[in-house]
Computed example of a mutant assay.
Amino acid sequence: MHTNDYKAIKAAVITVSDTRTEETDKGGRTVISHLEESKIEIAHYSIVKDDYEAIQAVVQPLLKQVDVIITTGGTGVAQRDVTIEAVRPLVDKEMEGFGEIFRYLSYTEDVGTRAILSRAFCGTYAKTVIFSIPGSVGAVNLAMKKLITQEVFHIVHELNK
């Protein structure tokens, strides 16, 4: 199937950061750019603090409103990085392969052994897929070009069977 064979997709983009503003959010803008290039509608964009409850408060209502949620930032190992902890309890099924392949690609194409620090994550809830990716522009480009835009239409199709 080609992208044109799938239904239109609505997406939410959430940047997790204590310091970024709409003007300085290069990672979030890069996600949006890739989605727009793939003809995916941006139904929501926001910046949320690195805070468990704040992240859940934004993500949870979107699970019934959009087909795909992409969070960027807060996926490292620092104490303040809680995106994965906030998102994981909201999913029904985890797609471990996303994080595994993301780290492999990061290792071979970009950051070498520092790839083990990435906790990129993907899971589904009902008919929505959630991707949580690092916030750097390099990581966003890698995840969007090599993984998310390549598979998101098929994933959403499968979730709607």
Score class of each variant (00 low, 15 high):
residue 134 P to A: 10
residue 59 V to W: 04
residue 150 Q to D: 02
residue 24 T to R: 11
residue 130 I to N: 10
residue 52 Y to A: 00
residue 15 T to C: 13
residue 16 V to M: 03
residue 81 D to T: 01
residue 107 Y to T: 04
residue 31 V to T: 05
residue 18 D to C: 03
residue 137 V to E: 09
residue 38 S to I: 01
residue 7 K to T: 01
residue 120 A to W: 07
residue 47 I to E: 04
residue 112 G to C: 09
residue 157 H to I: 00
residue 150 Q to L: 08
residue 114 R to L: 15
residue 5 D to N: 09
residue 46 S to E: 05
residue 23 E to S: 02
residue 12 A to S: 11
residue 5 D to I: 03
residue 31 V to N: 04
residue 47 I to T: 03
residue 70 I to Q: 10
residue 157 H to D: 00
residue 142 L to T: 04
residue 3 T to W: 07
residue 69 I to V: 13
residue 108 T to F: 12
residue 111 V to W: 01
residue 149 T to S: 08
residue 119 R to L: 07
residue 136 S to V: 02
residue 95 M to C: 13
residue 63 L to S: 09
residue 50 D to N: 14
residue 123 G to W: 15
residue 74 G to Y: 01
residue 76 G to D: 02
residue 110 D to L: 14
residue 21 T to P: 02
residue 91 V to D: 07
residue 151 E to Q: 03
residue 62 L to E: 10
residue 147 L to H: 04
residue 127 K to M: 14
residue 156 V to P: 02
residue 117 L to V: 11
residue 7 K to A: 10
residue 69 I to G: 12
residue 5 D to Q: 06
residue 114 R to G: 15
residue 118 S to V: 04
residue 124 T to M: 06
residue 11 A to T: 00
residue 154 H to C: 00
residue 94 E to C: 15
residue 95 M to I: 14
residue 133 I to F: 07
residue 11 A to H: 01
residue 28 G to I: 04
residue 21 T to V: 02
residue 107 Y to I: 05
residue 119 R to P: 07
residue 13 V to C: 15
residue 95 M to H: 14
residue 144 M to T: 01
residue 3 T to S: 11
residue 11 A to S: 03
residue 109 E to M: 11
residue 57 A to F: 01
residue 56 Q to M: 13
residue 70 I to K: 09
residue 137 V to N: 04
residue 64 K to S: 15
residue 91 V to T: 14
residue 61 P to M: 09
residue 156 V to C: 04
residue 100 E to H: 00
